[in-house]
């Protein structure tokens, strides 16, 4: 009795607060409508992975088919190839692009000339702002048969390499280009973490007779270690989301064998062959793995470092 009375009172309280403050709530209208339609709408739209879609029919499909499309995917002759490509490509990207910014930030931190440091930073951030189309254009030009990389190879006495046509080079070219694009921009977070380390710690280390290298090892690295761990965990969480647009622009039927990943397969199956339901099932498969990875990474982060995404 007392409880429901409290509830009614609270409800009235809510209404009064909303009425008094209605203008604040009008701000929510458009953005929430947008989120429901364009962010949650497609999530609900995923149910076509369980339903048969008819071209021209409802975007939510016509009739239930259960897990048919998921079973189809597991049985797909391409399944293991694209699954392994996605996995190896993302693991390689993580291994090679993650440590770079940490080391680069530490080295930048040792530069005494502030103006020079700023120049290096500005230049190294630049690739981050280049569109995928330009990036891939650059890759094609640099690796062309008559491009500078092959020029260098032939000067050194080697045979010209068909980087973009031979599937065995695809992963290296992709990972190197990711390194080029992320090296500088990735340092920002570390550089800011470095500024939070108290100068007193360095003074104390000096008094104890630590040289510059020992200071880096015992003061600087521990000072940014929590940042490194958080970023590593976040990266592992979002690992599977390889740069889909870049692969789509870079690959060709010649390199499908190594270059095809889940998202590009979804694109081809869905939008070139119009098998919307099947493609959605593959996409959903990837999203769910991604969600599991993020959630796991986050709870590990919470335990180890006390910082988490939510």
């Amino acid at each position: 009795m007392a409880n429901s009375f409290k509830q009614i009172k609270r409800q009235n309280n809510f209404l009064i607060r909303i009425k008094k403050d209605w203008q604040l709530y009008t701000f929510l209208l458009l953005p929430v409508l947008y989120f429901i339609i364009f962010k949650y709408g497609p999530m609900v739209g995923n149910i076509i992975a369980f339903r048969k879609f008819q071209p021209g029919g409802s975007p939510f499909g016509e009739k239930w088919v259960g897990l048919k499309y998921f079973k189809m995917f597991i049985a797909d002759s391409n399944f293991w190839r694209i699954f392994l490509n996605t996995l190896t490509l993302s693991v390689q990207t993580l291994i090679f692009t993650f440590p770079g910014p940490v080391i680069f930030a530490l080295l930048l931190n040792e530069l005494k000339n502030v103006a020079f440091k700023r120049v290096v930073q500005t230049i190294s951030y630049l690739p981050h702002f280049i569109s995928t189309v330009i990036l891939v254009g650059l890759i094609f030009e640099l690796t062309a048969a008559n491009g500078p990389i092959n020029h260098l190879i032939s000067v050194l006495g080697g045979e010209p390499v068909k980087f973009m046509q031979d599937p065995k080079y695809f992963h290296s070219v992709y990972v190197l280009s990711r390194m080029w694009q992320t090296l500088g921009w990735g340092t920002i977070v570390y550089l800011s973490a470095l500024t939070t380390i108290s100068p007193d710690l360095y003074e104390a280390a000096k008094i104890d007779g630590a040289n510059r290298w020992q200071q880096t090892l015992h003061v600087t690295l521990p000072g940014i270690s929590s940042t490194i761990i958080v970023l590593l965990i976040m990266n592992i969480g979002s690992m599977l989301s390889v740069s889909f647009e870049q692969i789509l622009l870079m690959y060709s039927p010649l390199t499908y064998q190594k270059a095809d990943v889940i998202s590009t397969y979804v694109y081809r199956i869905g939008l070139s062959q119009n098998s919307f339901s099947y493609a959605s099932a593959i996409g959903l498969f990837e999203s769910v793995i991604g969600l599991v990875l993020v959630t796991t990474a986050n709870s590990i982060s919470k335990k180890i470092t006390d910082s988490s995404l939510w």
Binding site: F35, I37, F38, K39, Y40, G41, P42, M43, V44, G45, N46, I48, F53, P59, S263, V266, Y267, G270, L271, F276, A279, S280, G283, L284, E286, S287, G290, L291, V294, T295, W310
Partner: peptide, 16 residues
């Protein structure tokens, strides 16, 4: 924030 970690995917977006 939920939409940062789970999204509708390519095909449902396209159909929408």
């Amino acid at each position: 924030v939920f939409t940062m970690y789970f999204s509708g995917g390519l095909i449902p977006n396209y159909l929408l």
